[in-house]
C-alpha cells in the first residue's frame, strides 16, 4: 500500500495516535496548513477514533486554533493588563480601523490577519505589536498606522 502523505496522518503517526497529545497534534496540523481545514479535522477524528463532535468542540474551544485561513501578514496585538494600562486598546482600534476587520478575522484579499493575545510576557516593552513575528515595543496608535501603511504599500494595496 502506498504511504499516506497527508500531513495530518504523519503528525498523528508521530504522536502515536495518543489522545493526550490531541492539542499538540492540532497545533502541528495547523502549522502545516496555517489553519485547520475541515477535511483535516475529519481525518484526525477518523484516524484517532474520536467523534467529530469532540474534535470540533476542542478545535473551536481553544483560542490557538483557527478554522479559517489566515492572511499573509499577521498582526498580533498583546492585550495583557500591562499593555492595557499603556493603551493597547488604542492600537487595536487603529488596526481595526485601518484594516476594516475585527480581531480573529482576515481581510478578504487574504493579506492581513488581525489577532489579539492575552499576554506575551514581555511587559517591559508594552504595549506590544507583533507584526509577522517581529516584536514592536512601546507602540502608539500613530506608530501602528505607520507600520500598517508601510505593509500595505509593499503589497501595493490602498488602505
Amino acid at each position: 500500500m502506498e504511504e499516506d502523505v497527508r500531513p495530518e496522518v504523519q503528525v498523528m503517526e508521530r504522536y502515536g495516535y495518543e489522545r493526550s497529545y490531541l492539542i499538540s497534534i492540532l497545533h502541528e496540523v495547523q502549522k502545516e496548513y496555517q489553519y485547520l481545514p475541515e477535511q483535516a479535522l475529519r481525518n484526525v477524528a477518523a484516524g484517532m477514533g474520536i467523534s467529530l463532535v469532540d474534535i470540533y468542540g476542542v478545535a473551536t474551544f481553544f483560542k490557538a486554533f483557527s478554522l479559517k485561513p489566515k492572511g499573509k501578514h499577521s498582526i498580533v496585538l498583546c492585550m495583557g493588563t500591562a499593555c492595557h494600562v499603556r493603551n493597547s486598546r488604542g492600537l487595536l482600534e487603529e488596526a481595526r480601523r485601518f484594516l476594516g476587520i475585527e480581531p480573529g478575522d482576515t481581510t478578504d484579499d487574504l493579506l492581513f490577519s488581525l489577532d489579539t493575545v492575552n499576554c506575551l510576557g514581555a511587559c517591559a516593552l508594552g504595549p506590544i505589536a507583533v507584526i509577522d513575528g517581529e516584536y514592536h515595543g512601546q507602540m502608539t496608535p500613530a506608530k501602528m498606522e505607520r507600520l500598517l501603511k508601510k505593509l500595505a504599500k509593499e503589497e501595493g494595496v490602498r488602505k
Binding site: R19, S20, I23, H27, I50, F61, F62, K63
Partner: peptide, 28 residues
C-alpha cells in the same frame, strides 16, 4: 514526565479543566 501543550485557554488554570485538556477534551 510528558509535556502537554495547551491551546490558549485561561480556564485551564482550573485543575479539572487542565486535566480535561490533557485528556484531549474541551478544557471545561
Amino acid at each position: 514526565i510528558k509535556v502537554s501543550v495547551g491551546g490558549g485557554a485561561f480556564v485551564c488554570g482550573e485543575s479539572t479543566a487542565l486535566m480535561a485538556s490533557i485528556e484531549g477534551r474541551i478544557g471545561e
